[in-house]
């Protein structure tokens, strides 16, 4: 892990999820920003350079799939982990361009492992 901590943006409309992920990734030594909507998330990305986005799909207003498309077309190379309670979006090819897809769980091991792996590769 580098001296300058990696920055993670969590986009989720559910406050408790944002709080949980923030605490968890802070514990792991990352810097964490949160946004409560896709729109706000895109605003944050305009102003801040991020290393990873953790993106919910089902959100009021703009959903995660639309946000994903915008992120990829504007911030090429920025990894995105889709983090959803739904697994069936995996079948939607629009989600295939995300770096990874993790189904929400009380056990954050899979999510944190994926995040660490992506960020480690990114440093290469």
């Amino acid at each position: 892990m580098s001296e300058i901590s990696k920055k993670i943006l969590v986009i989720d409309d559910e406050e408790n999820v944002r709080e949980l992920l923030k605490l968890e990734f802070l514990d792991l030594g990352f810097e964490v920003m949160t946004a409560n909507s896709a729109f706000n998330g895109l605003q944050v990305l305009k102003d801040h350079k991020m290393d990873l986005v953790i993106l919910d799909i089902k959100m009021p207003g703009m959903d995660g799939i639309e946000a994903l498309e915008k992120i990829i077309s504007t911030q090429r190379g920025l990894p995105v982990i889709i983090h959803s309670a739904y697994s069936h979006y995996k079948d939607n090819y629009l989600t295939w361009s995300a770096t990874s897809y993790v189904v929400k769980s009380g056990d954050l091991t899979e999510l944190t492992a994926k995040a660490k792996e992506i960020l480690a590769n990114k440093e290469d």
Partner: peptide, 8 residues
């Protein structure tokens, strides 16, 4: 969703 939060 909530279950993930409780569990987390």
């Amino acid at each position: 969703g909530p279950m993930a939060i409780i569990g987390g």
